[in-house]
Amino acid sequence: MQDDETTRRSTIARALAAAACALACVLPARAQTIQLMVGGVEKQIYLPVALADRLGYFREQGLDVHVLSDTSGGHAEDGLLTGSVQGVVGFYDHTIDLQAKGKFVQAVVQFSQAPGEAVVVAARRADAIRSPADFRGHALGVTGLGSSTHLLMQYLVAQGGIRKGEVTIAGVGAGDAFAQALREGRIDVGMTTEPTLSRLLKAGDARLLVDLRTPEQATSALGGIYPAACLYLSSPWISTHREDVQRLVNALVKSLRFIAAHSAQEIAAQLPAEYMAGDRALYVSTLQQSKSMFIADGVMPADGPANVLRVMRVAERAVVGKPIDLSRTYTTEFAQAAR
């Protein structure tokens, strides 16, 4: 009887172990928590991360991603360097700028091949300011000093033949803060993104001056394809978290493919109302016009990094006179392997 009881218990134990193993294969492991800082998650240029979050693509990859939002990419990179966030959704130029300062980060998935930004002039100044050559003596607004909008504005100033000191560039924030600065006369010209841009144009508060929202427009103004929005991570973190990086990139490439395969109307339907800034029809219209800036496979354009570096040197950023190894500023490995 004792042998029979022992056999019965052994059989039950094996059955329970088998059931536990089967359950473990079905249920996902505890999600890895990752914090991403975005330079304004509601901006259309950062649409891929907003969609990946809203559509559950991060959760599908076994990740618990917390998307944090800040007004400026310049502030976001500080969080990455201090370790308070694991990744930044911002512009690719930050990876080059940081290398010039001895900090190594890499873009692991490229969202866009154009800035998705535009320069507008306040309606009251539109007759006097018709191109960057007319910026002399005026106040120019960007999201923040050290930001990508600051870099691009510096480039346009230099291209207009204007020297440092002949203009004032101020960080005025994004969204409503930017619009208020333009309306109140604190700036005469500024660079901003959608949906703020089209709201100002529709209201008659501003006129379009330099358009960088599509690859064709960016190539004309910036001398070539200009990779902008991306996800970048610190190089040491990438080397020790390769599986997590691949899962992040899988989710974001899936989001980019969703953008490529769906209309602006269908995309907008997945977003919260506050992203529309009170005008859904205008949001859809502007997204349809600039959707071509997104890269469906997330792979860095071959000629893009060199053009960004050239723009930065013209703008007299920290990279001037310093050797830059562009191969260490991005990788296509994870995007090419994305499922």
Rank of each mutant, 00 (worst) to 15 (best):
P48Y: 00
V108S: 11
I12D: 05
A22I: 07
L282E: 12
L222D: 15
D64M: 01
I162A: 10
R9V: 09
L152E: 01
A20V: 11
Q61D: 04
F104P: 12
A100W: 03
Y46L: 03
A337H: 11
G141R: 09
A174G: 10
V314G: 00
D70N: 09
F258D: 03
S239W: 13
Q265L: 01
Q180E: 15
I259D: 09
V89C: 09
A177T: 12
N307W: 07
R54T: 01
V299R: 02
N250H: 12
A100F: 05
M37V: 09
P236F: 05
S131L: 13
A133D: 09
S263C: 01
W237M: 12
R280Y: 09
A273D: 08
V253F: 10
V249H: 08
T33E: 08
M37F: 12
A24R: 00
R54L: 01
Y46E: 02
F104G: 07
D70T: 12
F104R: 15
G224L: 12
A281I: 12
A179E: 10
I295T: 00
G39M: 00
Q270H: 14
A281H: 04
L200E: 15
P236T: 10
H66L: 06
A133P: 15
E216C: 15
V172W: 06
H241M: 15
L63M: 02
T6F: 09
A273H: 03
A335G: 10
T214H: 15
H66S: 04
V120E: 05
Q61C: 09
Q35E: 10
A206R: 15
A13N: 03
S148P: 03
G160Q: 08
Q217G: 14
P227F: 07
D297Q: 05
V109A: 02
S292F: 09
G83I: 02
L222G: 11
E216L: 15
E60A: 14
R9M: 07
T95Q: 03
G171T: 10
L326F: 06
E117T: 11
P215L: 15
P48S: 02
R280A: 13
H75Q: 15
R328A: 00
G39W: 00
L140W: 04
R183M: 06
Q246V: 14
G83Y: 01
A206H: 13
K254H: 13
I129G: 06
G298L: 09
A118F: 14
L145I: 01
S220L: 12
L231C: 06
D53G: 11
L209K: 08
E166C: 02
P132G: 12
V49E: 00
E77Y: 00
T286K: 08
G278I: 13
G83K: 01
G173I: 13
A29D: 03
A264E: 06
K164A: 05
L63K: 01
A118K: 02
G62F: 06
I96M: 02
V167E: 05
I169M: 10
F178G: 03
R317D: 04
G102E: 06
